Amino acid sequence: MEFPGFLGNAPVKEALSRAFSAGRFPHALLFAGERGTGKRTLAALIAKSLVCRDREHAPCGICPSCIRADAGSHPDIRTVEGGGASGDLNVDAARAMLEDAYRMPEEAPYNVYIVRLSGNTSNTAVAAQNKLLKLIEEPPDSAVFILLCPTVEAVLPTIRSRTQIFNLHPPEIGEAADWLRGKKGVEPEAALELSRCLGGNLGRMQEALDGSEATRAFMIAGEIVSAINGPGHRLLKAAAPLQRDRALFGETLGRLSLIFRDAFTLNAGGSSLLGGAPEAAEALRGFSQRRLMAMKELTDEALQMLGRNGNSGLLLTFYCAGLRQGDV
């Protein structure tokens, strides 16, 4: 099995290639990793390999099956998402997949389902996962399920125990910088600097080059982190762009929540980072576990209040004041 365009993660590639070559491919895979680590890229490559007509060089990229897979029109590959902004799996989508999964494939040996799980742990998300569990427990012989989620902990233990789990990570800084130079034409020094800043996360590096709102949120979150222990006016200045842009405010709060989570993980001796901003998390390493957890909880609370249409100006003032307090 080949992995064009999916960098790093050598152990994952080796394990998947070995299973594919031996004809013992798992019926259910779970890919976990922060946004931008290539979960969808890898899932698409696997789906294309499973329907490819050239088993020796899958995915060959030139057979009719590969061409239709690239075009998103192969009849035996389905991407399963729910509605709403998160796109998380819902009960209706899980039920439709349950009804569809027992049909015979039209062309390929397998029906392949790429299932998006956003990491939401609401009652609705749990109900959808319980519906999905019925398929994972007693899978049709001709079906392969590829589950995508930000973190393994967001998936029900009963599903985790029935899937082969792979945690995906960004490639090495140098490899990611080389990719930027070769694929995007970025100058060597700029490519290396961007790769270092974003921890080699290819998805976020592409967002940065596109100038997306997610990149603005990333930059503002980093400025807020660096200003937490500085003069009060510096923190307010860093957060000022959020006052009149609710979408940017929400994106930045989500980013900060992950950074505080990652800093807490680093302080506890862990290494599984989700926020794509290792330098920002490292800058908070000297903070107490109590304060880091309190800042994360404050951030999550602010995000919920923003979602309930709270006054963004007052909320921003409350939030900045909370970050400034030693014990929050």
Rank of each mutant, 00 (worst) to 15 (best):
S212N: 04
E193M: 09
R95K: 10
A321Y: 07
N120R: 12
L7R: 10
L89Y: 01
L315V: 09
G270V: 06
Q129W: 05
A28N: 14
L298E: 01
A71D: 11
M97H: 15
I165S: 06
D262N: 07
A177S: 08
S226E: 12
D327F: 01
R160W: 04
S86Y: 00
R244M: 01
A239N: 07
T124Y: 08
C320H: 02
E207A: 14
P231F: 07
H57S: 15
C320E: 08
G23F: 03
A43F: 02
E301P: 03
S17G: 14
V152Y: 01
A247N: 07
M293H: 10
R204G: 09
C320K: 05
A214L: 13
R78P: 10
A190D: 05
G270W: 01
K13V: 04
D178W: 02
F264C: 03
K39A: 08
F20H: 13
E301S: 14
E34T: 15
V80H: 03
G211V: 14
R196H: 10
L148H: 06
T158A: 05
W179K: 07
L202Y: 05
E251N: 11
D100E: 11
A227K: 06
F287P: 00
H57F: 07
G82V: 01
T252S: 04
A321E: 14
T299Q: 04
